[in-house]
């Protein structure tokens, strides 16, 4: 879907490049996570990819065509979901959606989307009367109203309660199952773990790591299983190598004879990887 080659960008008033030679691709039908702390160039990269910044160096190909050759019709194909509310607050949700819908050739069934997201009954209310969570859900409807083939999502579940976050994540997964492609930017590593097929960690305008979450966990995790058991009235911890555990007699003896308190795999989390790779703690 996207091929980004040696992408470099410098803001006119800056002396140094904000983006320093990015190389990555986003494959059709995948959810690609673009991760990293604030100020590393994620937003700039996305601004370039949604054609708000055009004077970049390097090459970006969207559907095998140079992005620079696209005009405003590019927006007929993409959807952009924002973290912050982006609606006319003195118009109703329905009026907002109807206004934007008229600008596109493809029109999604927004009533069904609003029903799924639980805001259909409030569609005739002014957006100023919406809660933050409702505005975020309306943002998603706005992003999807042209049946986009490529979706850019920024922190789509921030501000949502767990039930609504679940509904939205299910919609994101359904969109992928129907062939949609997503560039997802979020600090919530649980969402990344659940949704992303591949992730890229950005540090100082460059990609420090890019792989599937599973491979990254393998790479950064300890491949051990830790067993906690009681021996002679005291708690003992022993670690076993995960790769040889199936033939490790000591492990099976221990499980058979001792009183086991807990067994944990020491698989690392994306939170740990985020901190290791970027040097900054994530929010979740």
């Amino acid at each position: 879907m996207f091929q980004v080659k040696n992408l470099t960008y410098k803001y006119p008033r800056n002396q140094a490049n904000t983006i320093k030679g990015l190389d990555f691709e986003i494959r059709q039908g995948e959810i690609f996570g673009l991760l990293g702390p604030s100020g590393v160039g994620k937003s700039t990269t996305q601004k370039i990819m949604v054609r708000l910044l055009t004077n970049y160096r390097g090459e970006i190909y969207y559907r095998n065509r140079d992005l620079i050759t696209y005009d405003k019709d590019y927006y007929q194909e993409i959807g952009v979901g924002f973290e912050v509310p982006v609606h006319f607050s003195k118009l109703t949700a329905e009026e907002n959606i109807a206004f934007f819908k008229k600008l596109y050739h493809n029109k999604a069934d927004t009533d069904t989307l609003m029903k799924r997201l639980g805001i259909y009954d409030d569609r005739k209310k002014k957006v100023s009367e919406f809660s933050k969570g409702m505005k975020i859900r309306l943002n998603f409807v706005r992003a999807m109203l042209n049946n986009p083939v490529m979706l850019f999502l920024d922190e789509p579940t921030i501000g949502l309660d767990p039930a609504n976050a679940r509904i939205l994540k299910n919609l994101i997964k359904e969109y992928r199952e129907q062939g949609g492609t997503i560039l997802l930017s979020t600090h919530l590593m649980n969402d990344v773990d659940e949704l992303c097929d591949r992730v890229a960690f950005m540090v100082d305008g460059q990609i420090a790591e890019i792989d599937t979450p599973q491979n990254l966990k393998r790479k950064y995790g300890k491949s051990t299983v830790e067993v906690e058991y009681v021996k002679d009235s005291s708690l003992v911890k022993t670690a076993f190598n995960l790769e040889t555990i199936s033939s490790d007699n000591l492990f099976f003896e221990l499980v058979r004879r001792e009183k086991i308190i807990s067994i944990h795999s020491n698989e690392t989390t994306l939170d740990d990887i985020f901190i290791k790779v970027t040097g900054v703690e994530s929010y979740a």
Binding site: L52, D73, V80, V86, H87, F88, L103, Y104
Partner: peptide
């Protein structure tokens, strides 16, 4: 914030 979404329309 509506300007943000206007800028990514066709």
């Amino acid at each position: 914030g509506s300007l943000r979404t206007i800028l990514v329309t066709p």
